[in-house]
Design a binder for these strands. Sequence first.
DNA 1: AACGAGATTCTTTTT
DNA 2: GAATCTCGTT
Length: 629
Amino acid sequence: MDFNEQQQAALSSTTRNLLVLAGAGTGKTRTIIGRASHLLSQGVEAKRLALLTFTRRSASEIRSRLGKTSGEAGTQVFAGTFHHFCLRIMSARRNWFGFEDLTVMDRDDQLQLMKFVRGNVVGKDSVIPQASQLLNYYSYARNTNQSPRAYLEKYTDHEMPVIEVMQKIFAAYRERKLANSYFDYDDILHRFAKVLHDNTEVRQKVAGQYDHVLVDEMQDTNPLQWLILENLGQCAHLFCVGDDAQSIYAFRGADFRNVHSFSQRLQHSQTLKLEENYRSTQEILDLANWLLERSKLNYDKKLRAYRGSGIKPQLVEFDSEFDEAEWVARAIVKRRQEGAVWNDHMVLCRTAYSARPLEAELIERKIPYRFIGGTSLLQMAHVRDLLSVLRVAVNHRDEIAWIRYLTLWPGIGEMTAAKLIQGMAQMQDLDQALHVIDAWPRNAPEVAETVRSIARHLEDPAQALQLLSEALDPLLDNKYDHWESRCKDFQLLEQLASRHRSISAFLERYTLDPISATEISRSPSDEIVTLITVHSAKGTEAKTCFVIGVQPGNYPHARSLGDESAIEEERRVLYVALTRAQDELILTRNMAKSYSRTSWNASTGSHYFLEGLPSKLISHQSLVGVSVQ
DNA sequence: AACGAGATTCTTTTT
DNA sequence: GAATCTCGTT
């Protein structure tokens, strides 16, 4: 691999703690991989090196590239998300971290539990925020390392009595988690950080395992993750790469200004910059630069294209999202006919929801694609219904799964389920727990029998799922509309499960690592179009990028209006989207979007990022009023 | 008191 | 399209 002078200086640096500020496309990932290879070649043992990323996607990208550049040793380097890293270490040394069992809760589990305790504490009281909002508050407070109470008092407008009630709900939530050995995503980081911070002995043992910790996307580190880095940094060298202009995770507690205080927070540190963009043509960067310049914040960024000049970005306008979707699908097909491959195309969307018309077009035209971001297979409601049975078969104390499963049955609602669970909580094993159900007066024998039959196949998840989908078919058919299309997912699920030796291995594998339905039946070598949310797209690139739905209400998103810093973050989201393109950048927008009608007001329009876009930067084409045939 | 069918509302981003 | 709310039924 060849590196420019700046990259070479960074990757071979001997500074104890190094921050590399690297603009979009300047070879951030290349440099971090180069650093890892460099260290390995210097004789650092692979297992004394850890590479931390923010998304699973960039972790797997880095893993495969490191395998290519450094061979066997490269594959032995840990590369994964902060969550993976912490969980892996904690699972291996449970006693150090003070737990025996652990069930990871995903967002849906958290929501179920929060709803449940909220219902117990307040019933139906509309003054108290909904469970999802409560969860956001709770998670944000923990990620920024403050108590929920302090956060609520300082940063929200809720009245004191409301805050008091929320406190109670949080306490109940915490209690349920503890009683069930549930760890939510934040608990994973929090427990790890806390033990390392409080316990010198554990800190030395854990942090002492690493000589070098490499961190990607440093601008998205939140205070909780900082705490982890500072603890690791007591023994290891830190090598961090980031770009303040690409910070798009403030909702998770990240503060892009963190990268500016790097050298104050860490001793023996140095900051380097990478400035030359190798990814895109100058026309694409001109547009991205224009977007950043219009911000009040001074990002001090002006990307220069090493590659020089190319095709001018395009903006195409439509009546509806359906016309837009059809046009994009046709444009992709056309390019392929002209010699491009599917892999050259990436479509970026602001929300998973807004990608649906396009997804429908891709399916209809049989264009192979994968969708990254949005709801994964294992998060879909009907799939979770099946999984709930697997979960109780493995862990009979899994309350959330019990509620889900029990309430599937006619005659069992939340109240009955809660009572049954209360009875089962006392029981020592699954068998005893199932007797509680059998003893219920209005019980159908199938309720317990279904679980029993699954428990007989703990070592064969695919078989268990097949039995289960047959057993629950009538119930689910009744529960869901369009059952025929939904139940197809169960085949995918069985296919996925057949790769695992046991139900528990299968369940564990995908809680931190959800997989999208469009990715299961494909091999990595398959030729496909990528449809992706901007948030998931950070760190990726493609020759031709379509950014769809670039209209008021989306950029900035209507929900961010009224909050200056949220709007600025939205600008960075669009910036990330624009800077993914290598050769060709095509923006599309539709002005008839249903929610524009409700949320398009003076404010939406005046904040719109493409307002006043000079025509020299873009070729504008309007297909409004033109029927796309 | 608990359940279930039907009406209603609102859709960010991820570990 | 899915989560939530309302209200009538068991």
